[in-house]
Design a protein around this nucleic acid. Structure first.
Lengths: 133, 133
DNA sequence: AATAGTGGTAACCAAAAAGTAACTAATGGC
DNA sequence: GCCATTAGTTACTTTTTGGTTACCACTATT
């Protein structure tokens, strides 16, 4: 029987991808931005369980990895818009597949649709229905 | 302008998938097992930078999530074989896409191929060429 | 009689990640 | 003059994760 081993497992592209998006928040951020650019405060409101510090940090990392574009407007109060780069857009179908896989593999879990709800009258960040688990 | 918000972001299937495989070691483990079943010691040797405790833990979690089958043989010294379940096999093409994406998005990084090398004469776990970064 | 081999576990410690609360700058509205 | 607003930052604490070492059971080999 042939023995097998993998050469330098930590330098492969799958590991790299996981280092970039394989955590709790980043897929959500990418998903939210797939519908267009969004401000910091809106992202913060749409992911109520994230803290500002961590969100800032995740956004910075995504920007450094070339997945996010950050546009800061010289206004008072400040406005900063985040949007996906081409790289990130190329990742969207794969994220979709990951999502589809879970729906198939764990049919009993009946996941929420992660749906985007339009036309909220009040600013979303004052009006979020989600509650901490 | 329509405001948007996402309802209960933490319960969606993408987040679930990331909870299951979105970390440092699990994609590597799944990748290694994609060629067939493997013993604990072999996995430990093929991922030299992982500690036994963490590997044990990751394998348990993957088993609990239905991605791995654990077969323990009543021999001395003990033998335990890990293999992919159907669920996990369904995930392999998606892992492949994640890997392909990184190769395209970061062409300058020239990742290692994560190649499996056959016909090593000595047991791989005494003969691993990989060195800690 | 001692040692090697396997697949772990337990106790303990270090490092990384995440959460909390308070604070900032600059302006508009009351 | 005071408060609200936005996108953070800073200092500090807590939680989570990962790593280290020693140990076990059981047998075959030396």
């Amino acid at each position: 029987m042939a023995r097998k081993y993998i050469d330098n497992p930590n330098a492969c592209s799958l590991v790299h991808t996981m280092n970039i998006i394989g955590n709790k928040w980043k897929p959500i951020i990418l998903y939210l931005l797939s519908n267009g650019s969004m401000r910091f405060g809106m992202l913060n409101a749409l992911i109520p369980t994230i803290s500002k510090k961590v969100l800032t940090n995740q956004l910075k990392e995504l920007e450094n990895d070339g997945l996010l574009l950050r546009q800061s407007f010289a206004e008072i109060p400040p406005r900063v818009e985040y949007s996906l780069t081409e790289k990130a857009v190329g990742l969207l179908p794969v994220l979709r597949m990951l999502s589809d896989w879970a729906n198939e593999a764990y049919p009993k879990m009946e996941f929420e649709q992660c749906r985007i709800i339009e036309n909220v009258k009040k600013p979303a960040y004052n009006n979020v229905s989600y509650e901490k688990p």
